[in-house]
Amino acid sequence: MQTKDAAEVRIIRLLRAEGGQAVSGSAISASLGISRAAVWKHIERLRLMGYDIDAQPRKGYSLDPDHSRPFNNVEIAASLKTSLVGRAVYYYPALASTNATAFELGRANAPDGTVVIADSQTGGKGRLGRRWESPPGVNLYTSIILRPPVAPVLAHHLTFVAAVSVAGAVAAFIGRRPAVKWPNDVLIDSRKVAGILLEMDSEPDRVNFVVIGIGVNANLKAKAMPSAIRDIATSLSMITGHGVDRAALACALYSELEKWYKIYLDGGLAPVLEAWRGWFASEGKQVRVAAFGRTIDGVCAGVDVDGALLVRTQAGKVERVVSGDVETV
């Protein structure tokens, strides 16, 4: 686990601030309030984490600003500009599922805003036991623990908070507007680039915490996709034609999430839904909703004030959908 105040995170910040110039061991030692021997130990650990830190006698330590940045919790904690989301960052090379680990941390009283990141997942999950492809080295798999002061009946609002955050981060990152499929899949050219799944731990009258699980296909290549998703998925690098810095993507995502979470806490769902509608592409279109053995065909009439999907059937009846798969047809 790393926080903004952890020694290694502060060392990376110090070295970055010097833009490649050397910082003496005694200056780092004084700044952090730790011994020079301890500084040396941290530098060694940072090197093992992939930081190319140069050490020169009498000059000190330097970090080449042009060297590619590693993907780990030190890098994310050092780059974060948020105060809540990412206040504690857990990174794992491999997990069964970031949501499952975040859920355990939530139960162990991890603070509001704790994030979990994995380089790969062996059991990345989607809705209703579906699989989320999670190979190592390419994508972003992260789960965020939030403790909203709302009743469990309102917790699904965070689905929309998450959707506008991911859509906003993706748009900022690739300079193209994605579309959001109800309630929270993020698509580019009608192909899924990010998926979101939320899980809640609650008492009858209060939410203990919500885990927001987000998977973003960042650098996944088409040929590395299983055939089952090749025609329905895409990645940021497939759209832009160049690689994506996953740590920077994670930080952009956490910044957006913090922004929208605050808007939600201050103003409720309405301002969030208003933004969400701006990304939503199915309104007015013919849709088919598959909801557990039941199919609803009709024209999408937008969403209700609570976020439920509205579908006007041919008979003129407006159906409210709270869960299901929606396809435009």
Binding site: R127, A155, N184, M200
Partner: peptide, 9 residues
């Protein structure tokens, strides 16, 4: 119980 992709065990 699922509401809008929020799952509650």
């Amino acid at each position: 119980i699922e509401a809008m992709k929020l799952m509650n065990e």
